[in-house]
Structures are given as structure tokens and as C-alpha cells.
Amino acid sequence: MRRLLALFLLVLLSSCHGSSPPVAPAPASSAPADDFRSSTTYEKTALPVRLRIPALHVDSPIIDLGLQDDGAVEVPESVHEAGWFDGGPRPGQDGPAVILGHVDSKAGPGIFAGLHKVKAGTLVEVVRADKSVAKFTITKVSRVEKTRFPTDLVYAPSLDPTLRLVTCGGTFDHAAGSYRDNVIAYADVV
């Protein structure tokens, strides 16, 4: 079968080659390659400055977050502000951008108090310093023990333009003064 197909193709090729006039582009009078320049003007995606999640009534400035001395991610000082992990991609850029926010203070709700109950399809907008807006929709929400935090799924680089929103949830360890779990919302760029 393979040989028959190859033979058929060759017959076609031979017959066509001899009969049809070429419609090839004629060689240029000068060599266009002489003027070729490779692109060198890489434009980076602007920094995120504001987070909006209308369904959760979230509309907050975004601060930059790095790593603490022990290697854990920094968190915002204010429970009413979101923070972007600046060791990873910027929102809308290829790769997983990560934004963190508190679920609560000692006395009341924080910016991500409603994240654990957000629905798939919920719109998330990130306004950037150049006024452009990266839009995402939530695809799933999971709750995981902090001791089993899925670092690779949240932070590890692929080239898919995604967003992860991270906060606390689950039971509260009063002795340690912290929640035992993290709530993670995964979102894809629109």
C-alpha cells in the first residue's frame, strides 16, 4: 500500500512537473536578506497594580511579594490588600502568576474571605501598570494541607498563561496561630 501510494505520488509529481507552468515568485533584483535584522526589542508585560474579582467584591491594589528568609513566600501586611509573588511571571505573561491574600484578620474577613466558595467560570481581572487588563476565569478551587502544598502545580513554570490565587482555609490551629490548609483557585487567561 505504501509503495503504491508513493508510486502514485511520483506519477502525479512527474506529470505535473512537466506540464504546468511554474507560478514561482521570481527572484528579487536585489537580495532582501542583506537588509534582514533580527528583532531585539523585547517588550515585557507590565507589572500588576490592581486586582478585581467582581463576584467576590474584590477591588484591591496589588503589592509585590518576595521570599522570607526561611524560603516561605511573603504575604501582604494588610488583610485588605492582595500581593503578587514577584519571583514568578507577571499576570497575562506566559506562565503561572501567583497572587496571595489573607482570608481574615483576627477580627473579621480579609480580601480572600470568599475564595473557598468561588465558582468555576468566575471572572478575575488584573490591571497592569500600563493600564492594560489581563482577564482570567477560574477553572477550579482546591483546599490542601499546608504541609502538602503543591508547589509545582502553583509556582512551577510552564508557558501556559495562568493565574493562581492563594489564601488560607480549613481548620485553625490555635496553638500555631494559623490555618492548617491553603485554598488555591486556578484560573486560565481569557
Binding site: 526561611d70 482570608v103 481574615d104 480579609g110 494541607e145 508547589t151 509545582d152 492563594v166 490555618y179 485554598v183
Partner: peptide, 17 residues
Amino acid sequence: LPKGGAATGFGGLAGHV
């Protein structure tokens, strides 16, 4: 990459989230 989970809560909503 960051190590471990994030400390993003203080317990004000404990039992509700």
C-alpha cells in the same frame, strides 16, 4: 520557588472557611 504553604490568615473566620 517558595517553600511550603502561605500564612494568609489569622483565625477571625475560623470555622467558617
